[in-house]
């Protein structure tokens, strides 16, 4: 994150809690970049987060009203606040385990109701904070602390899930696509209704290490080669698509 965005940080915050090589620090900067470019008033914003690494992106760092809630219940908390004060610009920032595993039901109901809020889901493919266990977005076959012989189950496609539940704007970007990610977050914030961004972010310490994905830089490079647009995907065969991730507005 660049120094000029530090003005959005709560005074007195010296260090962040991310592990070395975590992509969530990049995401934190991109969210603030989007807010800065839109010139949003932080006093009118409410950041709601749950439990897990990504829940720390807004709390305690962002200098604005922040509600650091129970595990999985972010969207329910945010719904009550928005219902009472519709003037609040509500942004939910949390992880895949928080939003899609324990909080999956609230996620689809928030989308179904089309509650006016922007949800940013940092997807690092595992439970990072508790030491790297399998979650609903872990790829099939991946090694985690609770799947030593490989994950036997398929992962959720979060964007398809949330889109099917009724979200009005859904997009997926990796932290290696900063310009597109900022554009996507801005569009989500400017769109009225339930908007959802799946932010792909590497977790070298808990996920990468066990799956021999290399150093943080190699994981970032890997994301850069894997992420392709929908248009590009249409030119590839089913076999070629297996190793790719489609990003963009979906």
């Amino acid at each position: 994150m660049v120094r000029e965005l530090e003005k959005y940080f709560r005074p007195g915050i010296g260090v962040t809690t991310y592990c070395p090589g975590c992509g969530e620090a990049i995401l934190q900067g991109l969210i603030l970049r989007a807010i800065d470019e839109l010139k949003l008033n932080m006093d009118e914003m409410l950041f709601v987060s749950g439990i897990g690494c990504a829940a720390w992106i807004p709390s305690p760092y962002f200098n604005a009203d922040s509600l650091h809630t129970l595990h999985g219940r972010t969207i329910a908390f945010a719904t009550g606040a928005k219902m009472v004060n519709p003037k609040l610009k509500v942004m939910v920032i949390s992880g895949d385990g928080d939003l899609a595993d324990i909080g999956g039901n609230h996620l689809i109901h928030g989308a179904r109701r089309n509650m006016d809020m922007t949800v940013i889901c940092a997807n690092n493919q595992n439970y990072g904070m508790t030491g790297g266990q399998v979650c609903a977005t872990t790829p099939e076959g991946a090694l985690t602390m609770t799947t030593h012989q490989g994950n036997p189950f398929r992962p959720f496609d979060l964007c398809r899930l949330v889109k099917a539940a009724g979200a009005v704007y859904v997009a997926r970007y990796a932290v290696t696509q900063p310009v597109a990610m900022v554009r996507g977050i801005k569009k989500a914030l400017q769109t009225e209704g339930f908007t959802f961004i799946e932010a792909l972010t590497p977790c070298p310490v808990q996920f990468g290490r066990r799956n021999k994905l290399g150093k943080p830089a190699e994981m970032l490079k890997d994301l850069m080669t894997k992420c392709i647009s929908e248009e590009k995907a249409e030119t590839l065969s089913t076999e070629e698509l297996k190793s790719k991730i489609i990003t963009g507005e979906l």
């Binding site: 219940r73 329910a76 009472v84």
Partner: peptide, 26 residues
Amino acid sequence: AAFMQMEDEIASICSCIGASWAGAKA
């Protein structure tokens, strides 16, 4: 006043906590 039938009781009470901090008696 605002009324919501939520998807379960957990969501109900959590939304009340959000509403209370947004200034309503919940």
